[in-house]
Amino acid sequence: MESANTLTSTVKARIEAAGSDTELRAIEREYLEKGGVVAGLLAAVPSLPGPERPAAGRAANQLKLEIAAALGAARERLASADLDQERSSAGFDASLPAQHSPRGSLHPIVQLTRELSDLFHSMGFLVLDGPEVETDEHNFEALNIPRDHPARDMQDTFRCDPEGKLVLRTHTSAVQVRAMRQLKPPMRAIVPGKVFRQETTDASHEHTFHQMEGIVIDKDITVAHLISTMKVLLRGVFGREIEVRLRPGYFPFVEPGFELDARCPFCKSGCSVCKQSTWIELLPCGMIHPNVLRSSGIDPETWGGFAFGLGLSRLVMLRFQIDDVRHLLGGDLRFLEQFS
């Protein structure tokens, strides 16, 4: 039988040479477990001459401890090598594309409506809604546009009956009247929504589009307040100060009425967006006509106000440089996906 000392060096060499946990496990079984070499050594101790027994017993136990320690160290060495393997950059292609989850999207009209609603809400404006199938009264009469008024030509109207008692609202201004009749001044409100015009469609004309009406009614409201509010609006939309100009514009429900032009945000000296003029006609606005206030039971001597009508569809097109208005309501995923 080999001595414990020779055994120690043989086993240690085997353990150090082992390349897998399986080999280590075999060595462990061979030496340390029931019926193994160390057990054999220990079992042989009583048969030794008396004086040799203590030393042989110690040597066998020493061997057991050393093997166990060597096995532990070898296992640590193997585990560490595995981790090093995992930490190596070999075979790692950093340029492989990301694996995306599919994305959803919010409609660009909704995105802009939210931004503007938040902006105006923060300035004390209620966000209102109104019917899309409207009475002639709300859409025209109460807005100072009687029958046979030439202004009706400006807005080709879908009629729900031959006489046009019910129409599809041609502007969100129709909600002005409802708001003024329901709420008490002072009031500030915006009304985003769908509007309809009986028009032949092409890349820049749609029969259905979105607008946002705004009204402010209070004491001592002046053109100066309107200008300020419009500048805040544009700052919100374009993220920076935009020069504006007001020029006369005719809308029967305001007096004075204006067209508001914004300095073209896309160029300095003329481009296709502003038709080389450096100004973009952005929105009609004006001081609410006393007749309109009166028809809603508000005394124009005490209260005054302004109104504006923002073309949301047009603004979305401007912001995203969309070249065809028909994309907006076309439901084509290839268009919608771009706004996620």
Partner: peptide, 24 residues
């Protein structure tokens, strides 16, 4: 009256009116 106010405003030029922030 408001028709005449518009006449004055447009000839005076709306661009010559200084802006004022809404208060409330």
């Amino acid at each position: 009256e408001h028709d005449l106010i518009e006449e004055v405003g447009r000839i005076h030029r709306y661009g010559n009116i200084a802006e004022r922030v809404l208060v409330g």
